[in-house]
Design a protein around this nucleic acid. Structure first.
Lengths: 336, 336
DNA sequence: CTGTTAGCGCGTTCAA
DNA sequence: TTGAACGCGCTAACAG
């Protein structure tokens, strides 16, 4: 492997000059730069990362905390993070927390030990103060979720507005009996979507019924969505539409409807959320699409700014959009 | 952050001695070691990785190539790799290839540029010579799949024997009309399982029928499993058991059976494979369990041996086991 | 058994 | 505009 010294020798300059050219720092004569660049190309020179890190006191590693990586929603974000990290010469070190705050805290200790330059947390669940504790001393970003009432820099969509958009779609189709399948987790997104659900009803003058709100499992499992939808559809006055806060919950709802002999969307409309598994089952789900990859890449970029000592916006909101597919249709029951 | 020098000073020894103690290399008086260890603890000393890497010429990074990370099968392996890597002070750099050989090749170039010390490939699909090309010059392991007729070190289960075991279970339950839902990919595991299927039939004296073998999609999608099972169950003499080479295919098969008014397992038995999503739907799947986490951790350990200049076994086979659940039952149709 | 010392490759003064 | 030299923290070779 060629070192900076090899390049310097071939170009007939000092290593300092090579360093200047490679890092685009300081003034260098065009002719000199040319020679250096040629030598770099010829030798296929790549700076030694370890040396750079030793010199700079940086590690070139960012910590990524994720509840899991099998959920395609998280997987897409992780991919976005990874792509950007790679492009910037960083390695993303992914730690699966399994919702375990202790494990997350352990991983974050890497920041103290200078084993990582910063961290992106995909979910601060479990210990509300975890993110802010570390963000006070180290570069830390919350992606997709964040703890309210703390000032940790975060990147996400506007879940409240997103819920409003879903509800508007359903209401425009003539639905009034709209069920909500939420999840038994303390995520802000979950709360915001519920808030959007309720406010949308209110705005349309539709009565809120507590029994129309059911909870799936914390991790949005298919089975729990099916069970929750089953309860809703067994009501004396069952909903004609189900607003589910994840695609897996919505798929469960579809199957629950089918098992009861109901057709989707003719008899009951169903909406998913995140738009990551919306086309696994027929009918394909109308789902609220999150810019997952961009959520990840933006988080990484912002983290790098933080690491670089800059002061990016504390709250970065990316835009979402509702993707209408086959699982929603006008309310044909005339039930209001 | 404390450096080796700080520790040496506090312990009243030279940095060389600290290094010896910390790395357990060379003889050191017990009393001296004690003092050093105390200083290490007091200062919460952690060796600077960048310095170690610079010194050793190593990167501390291993490349992991995976087709995707959402499949729980791969996710478990990745977790196993990651756990072991972390324990050994290594960072696992995961590259999602999406079955794209060019992308995989690009990533492997990191080995040439000394950006990684070795690589684990979860799937060499696409370009048969990819793994062996790089394995010739760098530490490379194939995990779970491998290219036949090359001598790249690999870690996997015995897919042929595993298929035999599944078939034995089904045959012992009295099934003779056994369908096989395979996948449209060139993986060795797929071929081996088919071979096991056919040999098991032969061993039992059961006639092989080409129309009993169907293919799901290359990535074992639920929908393709459902479609394949639908074709099988529509046959004039439909199978009484379906041997599927993945859990998602098997789930699709379960749903296909249900939609045709057949009960699982009363009317038709279904088996999954990998045992990673066997308990998502009822009836829970009888599935052949792979030691995914161990597949990953073993791969990492073997890779580290390779990196360390050792010469581990070229072929490492881990044991599997059949987990019997609710989706298989004795053949009650009496159809032979 | 322990200490001294020479780099590993790089970025950054400080001089010229 | 360029170059010489130092040191980041560590390991290993060599002395003692």
């Amino acid at each position: 492997m060629a070192t900076i010294g090899d390049v310097a020798e071939l170009a007939g300059v000092s290593i300092a000059t090579v360093s200047r050219v490679v890092n685009a720092r300081g003034r260098v004569l065009d002719a000199t730069r040319e020679r250096v660049l040629r030598a770099v190309a010829e030798l296929d020179y790549h700076p030694n990362r370890a040396a750079q890190h030793l010199r700079s006191g940086m590690t070139g590693i960012v910590l990524i905390l994720t509840p899991n990586m099998t959920n395609p929603y998280y997987a897409s974000i992780l991919t976005g993070i990874g792509d950007t990290a790679t492009a910037r010469g960083y390695s993303a070190f992914t730690c699966i927390t399994d919702e375990d705050a202790a494990r997350a805290r352990d991983a974050l200790e890497m920041l103290k030990h200078q084993r990582a330059d910063g961290a992106i947390m995909l979910c601060s669940n479990g210990d509300p103060s975890l993110a802010s504790d570390f963000a006070a001393s180290y570069p830390v970003i919350e992606c997709s979720e964040h703890e309210p009432d703390t000032d940790v820099t975060h990147v996400s969509i506007d879940n409240y507005q997103a819920a409003l958009d879903v509800m508007e779609h359903l209401a425009d189709l003539g639905h009034e009996r709209i069920g909500h399948i939420s999840a038994a987790n303390p995520y802000l997104s979950t709360a915001e979507r519920l808030r959007g659900y309720r406010d949308a009803l209110k705005a349309r003058g539709i009565r809120y019924r507590a029994q129309y709100v059911e909870q799936g499992s914390a991790d949005y499992s298919f089975a729990s969505g099916k069970a929750a939808a089953g309860r809703l559809l067994a009501l004396p006055e069952p909903p004609t539409a189900l607003f589910c806060i994840s695609d897996t919950l919505a798929m469960g709802a579809e199957v629950a409807a089918l098992e009861r002999g109901l057709r989707v969307p003719a008899d009951v409309s169903v909406t998913g959320f995140d738009d990551v598994q919306a086309t696994m089952l027929h009918p394909y789900l109308t789902s609220l699409s999150q810019p997952c990859h961009k959520l990840g890449s933006t988080s990484m970029e912002v983290l790098l700014e933080l690491i670089g000592g800059e002061h990016p916006e504390k709250e970065i909101v990316l835009s979402h959009r509702l993707v209408v597919r086959e699982s929603t249709a006008p309310n044909q029951k005339g039930t209001k």
